[in-house]
Write a protein that binds this DNA or RNA. Structure first.
Lengths: 325, 325
DNA sequence: TTGTAAGCGTTATCAA
DNA sequence: TTGATAACGCTTACAA
């Protein structure tokens, strides 16, 4: 690869001058600028960002740690983040933690060694201290790790309430909430709190079924749904923690010959595109995934620019009523 | 962040020695090694990979260009690639081209400036020459750009044949293939070729409906499916280019009151996890996505190691028969 | 308007 | 077994 020296030599100028036209700094004559550009073109010159980053102490790379891009929620989130970062001249280094603490720690160290400018955490399995000592801007998604770390989330409490209220309004008499493991301490846990309260207020019985702490495991999800219907066949309203889980509920209902929404009503969560692809299409609580991704990136960039950012950003959710209720 | 100088100073040795223990090179006394390690720990030292990469002319970063991680096929592919790269000490820089040539060119330049060691292309919208002059190892997924660029694909021809044959065996009398735009010149086009041949051999009429050249556009897909049924209501066998498209077919059939598989039989493609989540679950042609991802990474790493790699790697596909046929 | 030289944090070469 | 120093490709005082 051509270096700035090659360009300088070929065009008969010093590297300083070439660097100047490259960065549009200081005074350079039009003629010189033109000649330099031409030469760069000829040599197919691409400035070495590693060298630049080393000098500037800024890499224009952001680290993204999520459980797994293969999960529809995170893949959509990642897609929007990438687009937003790209628009501001930043790149994304992709890390799938699989919720494995060793891997997550490893990734964090890797990101530090590579001097990423900031990190977005959509996964957290370590002790608070390991995040606090990170020495670089952080933003989390849907988790409050520490007061010093800004987070982006949607209104989980409202989401839980909307979902439950809808099931109540539709006349359900016995509810179940199938959700991720509450020990993971996500803000998503507020959905369950809201669910429990709303159900109590409505005078309706409310079960909660938690998955294990593994990252998305299809078999386990299916088992849980099976178990729920086996133990409580009289359940007639289900609030699922994701559209994915809702899909499994739909399938299990079909297997059991229970019609949705006639005998069982179902509300999913996230409103990933998939939710509207099923028959019946899945009623869901929409998280503004695009906004969440963009905001996370923006908050990170703001921190990099030395600006203050709010410690918490909670975006509104919306009930998307479809055919399962 | 602490530098190697800080460590050297604190431990009372030269940077050379510290560098040696860091890289496990040359002779160092056990005592020294131990003291150095301790000091690194104390200072929370993380070697600057930017500096290392600059010197070694090797960044241990791979570029991944795909249309969009939000698409289930690519998100799963990306997930496996990331895991495989990680296992070998490589990181992945994520780029969503959205099949936009300007963006793709931009990304390629960015990856060059950042001195990635190699690039995996799951998208290609530029002229062959732009790829040939890339000056670094490349591997493509499902596209043959040039004889000099190795590709990984699954057996599209066989996939097309298996799908078509199944529909014929099940007694379909009029087939339709809904697929991506054939002008994109993907190896996936072989599916259509196989489909046309197999249908002809079976003496059955075979339509082909192509989408536009946009990256996955839900509305467009739905329109296409609607159009197909409007123009040819007598179609009784559909071969969809992805499980996603198959889902739309399923939905449209429900809307039209045509039962699947009784009145219309349906085969999807890819066998992403989603395929088995629908009711009825979708019969699909399984691409070995994991293997494809891993192999692509491995082929790239082999090239980096200076080894010869086969110009073409075609993996087997498998018919996953489920409830839509 | 342009050039010289130091420095970013490493590793490799050569000496000691 | 350890250390001094040049080099990687770039930017930026400081000079001219």
């Amino acid at each position: 690869m051509a270096t700035i020296y090659d360009v300088a030599k070929k065009v008969g100028l010093s590297v300083t001058t070439v660097s100047r036209v490259l960065n549009n700094r200081g005074y350079i004559s039009e003629a010189t600028r033109k000649r330099v550009y031409e030469t760069m073109e000829e040599l197919n010159y691409q400035p070495n960002e590693l060298a630049r980053s080393l000098l500037r102490k800024q890499s224009n790379v952001l680290g993204l740690i999520i459980p797994d891009v293969a999960h529809p929620f995170f893949s959509e989130l990642a897609s929007h983040m990438e687009a937003c970062a790209y628009a501001s001249g930043y790149k994304i280094l992709l890390c799938n933690s699989h919720l494995d603490p060793d891997k997550e720690r490893d990734y964090i160290d890797m990101l530090k060694r590579n001097r990423v400018d900031g990190i977005i955490m959509g996964s957290h399995t370590l002790e608070v201290d390991e995040y606090r000592t990170l020495q670089r801007p952080l933003v989390t998604i849907d988790r409050m790790i520490d007061a010093s770390i800004p987070y982006v989330a949607s209104d989980n409490y409202l989401g839980g309430r909307l979902a439950t209220q809808l099931l109540l309004d539709k006349g359900c008499r016995k509810l179940a909430h199938i959700c991720g493991n509450l020990a993971l301490d996500l803000l998503a846990n507020q959905r369950d709190a809201a669910y429990v309260e709303a159900a109590a207020a409505g005078g309706v019985e409310a079960l909660t079924y938690e998955t294990g702490t593994n990252v998305f495991d299809e078999g386990e999800y299916r088992e849980l749904v099976k178990q729920l219907f086996a133990e409580h066949p009289e359940v007639d309203g289900i609030f699922a923690g994701s559209d994915l889980m809702a899909a499994f509920v739909l399938q299990e209902c079909a297997r059991l010959g229970r019609s949705v929404p006639d005998q069982v009503k179902l509300v999913g969560y996230d409103d990933v595109p998939m939710a509207s692809w099923f028959v019946p299409s899945i009623t869901s609580i929409r998280q503004p995934i695009r906004q969440m991704g963009e905001l996370a990136v923006e908050l990170l960039l703001k921190q990099l620019a030395g600006e203050e950012v709010p410690p918490a950003t909670v975006l509104p959710v919306e009930l998307m009523e479809r055919e399962t209720t």
